[in-house]
Design a protein around this nucleic acid. Structure first.
Lengths: 230, 230
DNA sequence: CTGATATGTGAGCACTGCTCTCGTAATTGA
DNA sequence: TCAATTACGAGAGCAGTGCTCACATATCAG
């Protein structure tokens, strides 16, 4: 007799199977995912799926959560493979990690970084997985700052409102003790990273930049230097 | 007897009416627009709509085209209201113009800058309206460059591949005669502008930045300075 | 072993995009 | 001016959708 009851185990497998086939359908149909089609593929009747997911939205939410975590681990692995002291290397690896995952899983990326489906409110438990990449960027900045190799650019004037906002943001767990100027660069880089990937994936750069690999690295390098990473 | 035949005129009005109610539905249902619901609102049967739009996709395409142009004229008007010599003012007005329009018409914005609907290929006639904002940004840079007030930052090294790509891009109509370094900043700003608005509209900055008005202006100012606008 | 629970089935409802046929109205050419 | 053509709206119908419900069966806990 296993630790889990048989029914619980087969249920977990079923959930995984549903999500897997749903992901496969996602790559074809995009966000308008058909529960019935997924059920058909699994050889079950559509109403049976509702034993596992209360609605189509709930299935999509599960896929979104998985996507955030999948992106998170992929990026963290890429970043983790670089020597701790190599800050620019870690930075670039992080950015590339996001982009590579996005290009490998464009539909899942669109699911989490495209337009939100109307009336769909992101549940509370998605916000932690959703911030993994941002935390990774900040971690690099913090490491660099602690080693004295990331310094706030002087002479730049941040509006007082923004500065206090950043200070407040810096008090959140995981963002501790960074000067506002550095944190500001972090946010800028975070926005630009996903902005660029969005434009690339959604074809907005198609007749603008050919060699997107090189351009991406160039832009991320600029961001890194801008953030004070040497 | 009018210049247009009566039928042609009432047809044009009908098309406009359909698009207007479709836009209203868009603000509620989001991108999954119901042709039947639109028809119901207009007191006609669903099949009648097909006399005006061959498919739901075609109606969406028309809305997309209108949205691009609406965003274009709004931004161009905002930019046009600033004295020609005030380059930072024109820049900020342009960026604010985009953001204001996006915030005023979030669903139409999502339609054109959110994830593309799967299997939907942007028709050829959308690319010109889609580039109006970008051309506006470049026009400001070109004006500044001609007046000798926008100078390429020295000391920055652009990869050769990117540089030749930018040179080729600069040969396109409307982008004439800008140094690659300036053009590079223009592209960066363009990406960042829409990246930031995306993050704002899609709620990604909700627990990060409170005073988004100030932050936006701050970021756009940084971009302008970065692009060499003084 | 028995009662409770979890799961799959199939019918059904209201909705969707889209097609087709059929009258009717507006337009056009002779 | 009149006939032929064209444009348009109505309505039925098809295949698909998300979702609910009653019902049967398999699995569990006590």
């Amino acid at each position: 007799m296993p630790a889990q009851t048989l029914r619980a185990r087969v249920r977990a497998e079923m959930i995984e199977e549903i999500k897997t086939t749903a992901r496969r359908h996602l790559a074809v149909d995009g966000a308008n995912l058909s529960l019935r089609a997924v059920a058909r593929d699994l050889g079950m009747v559509s109403s049976a799926v509702y034993r596992y997911f209360a609605s189509r939205d709930e299935l999509l939410t599960a896929l979104i959560l998985d996507a955030y975590n999948s992106l998170g681990v992929a990026t963290e692995q890429a970043e983790g493979a670089v020597a701790r002291s190599d800050l620019p290397g870690r930075w670039l690896a992080t950015c590339r990690g996001v982009r590579d995952w996005a290009r490998a899983n464009p539909h899942e990326y669109a699911l989490i970084y495209g337009s939100p489906v109307p009336g769909y409110a992101a549940p509370q438990d998605t916000i932690a997985p959703a911030s993994r990449v941002a935390l990774l960027l900040v971690a690099i900045l913090r490491d660099g700052h602690e080693r004295g190799r990331v310094r706030a650019e002087r002479g730049e004037r941040i509006p007082r409102v923004v500065r206090t906002q950043l200070a407040q943001l810096g008090r959140q767990p995981g963002l501790g003790g960074l000067p506002e100027a550095v944190l500001a660069r972090g946010v800028t880089a975070w926005v630009h990273l996903f902005g660029l990937i969005n434009f690339e994936l959604f074809g907005r750069l198609d007749d603008v930049i050919d060699d997107l690999d090189t351009y991406f690295d160039y832009e991320m390098g600029t961001l890194a230097r801008h953030a004070g990473i040497s």
